[in-house]
Design a protein around this nucleic acid. Structure first.
Lengths: 178, 178
DNA sequence: TGGTACATGTAACATGTTACATGATTAG
DNA sequence: CTAATCATGTAACATGTTACATGTACCA
């Protein structure tokens, strides 16, 4: 019997997904998560399967009776709704930075110019591809008149990828001390 | 006896830190990590303590005899140096995105305007503070003529924080559909 | 010399990832 | 009807975080 520690972001995300759905099974939530929040908060199916019973224990979600294929439907309780609201408006949680590109570039002194160029090219290509995805998604979302809160996260993605690309492109000149 | 699976970024970072030091204990490496790479790749002391024996098992580092306070010094082996080089020039590893600000904003429909404003204010303040830190660090590094690879990661930080601040500032207008 | 602060190292826990076992659905 | 495929759920593992036990140095 676990007690009302604070929510972590992953649990909160699950509650948030349940917000717009009356009742959903783990599998359905996993699909929702993939579609709606995977670009900025990755969650695996396994996490959702593990987390839901815990949230139920804490009274944040209620579980219904097993349905097709033994899947259990969960729904948000008033307590869960409140906990989600508190998380949403709560203080920013300082998260550990994890940027593999910077980690590598920071060790740039240990490779030669060609290797560095090749490294940057590969990362540049990955970022360029993601930028293209964000841009086309953004266009689609706007055309469909999707809700603005979804659109602005996509806009963030576009700006982020552009920033990274510009930084990569500027690196040669930034690396030669004036 | 564990076999030569690929390096993950955290192990690679440890090897990278050993690159410029002949031999170091876990504690010393932790201090180095904090100073050199914590802004873009957080590692805890505990991880380093746990990882070093594993790396030794795999032959990537060698361990010396226990010194003061029972601390063990480790040094990079030729194998370790090679593994690090391969990681450094290897393919970009797709990492799970984790952006709590976007996660919250994506759920923005569930809070009212005031709460959203307050939420954004708090995050804005945190980012503004980090921007200031990056800017002053950058100035210092340039003045000291620090190695360019360190400087450009700091430059990235400045650009990143500016991008986020601009996005936050643009949100009000982005959120009202034209 | 007592005790406070600090450093090393460990262990317990929380979270994230991968691989698998099982049963249902569907294509041929 | 049988095979392949797919979805649910579990379990093992990898990684990251927090709290603690122990010993050492420093200082009053």
């Amino acid at each position: 019997m676990r007690q009302p520690r604070d929510l972590n972001a992953t649990s909160a995300a699950v509650l948030g997904l349940l917000h717009r759905i009356d009742s959903a099974t783990a599998g359905e939530l996993a699909r929702e998560a993939e579609e709606q929040i995977s670009p900025f908060w990755g969650i695996t199916r396994s996490q959702i399967f593990r987390e839901l019973p815990v949230l139920a224990q804490r009274g944040l979600v209620g579980s219904g009776r097993r349905g097709a294929r033994g899947s259990v439907p969960y729904s948000l309780t008033p307590t869960g709704r409140q906990a989600f609201g508190e998380w949403l408006t709560g203080p920013p949680f300082p998260q550990q930075p994890r940027n593999e590109l910077l980690l590598r570039v920071g060790f740039g002194r240990y490779i030669n110019g060609e290797e560095l160029t090749s490294l940057l090219d590969k990362h540049r290509a990955a970022h360029a591809e993601r930028l293209a995805q964000y841009e086309s998604a953004l266009e689609q979302m706007r055309a469909q008149g999707l809700e603005p809160y979804r659109i602005v996260t996509c806009e963030y993605g576009v700006r982020y990828e552009r920033m990274v690309l510009a930084w990569i492109d500027d690196l040669p000149s930034l690396l030669v001390p004036a």
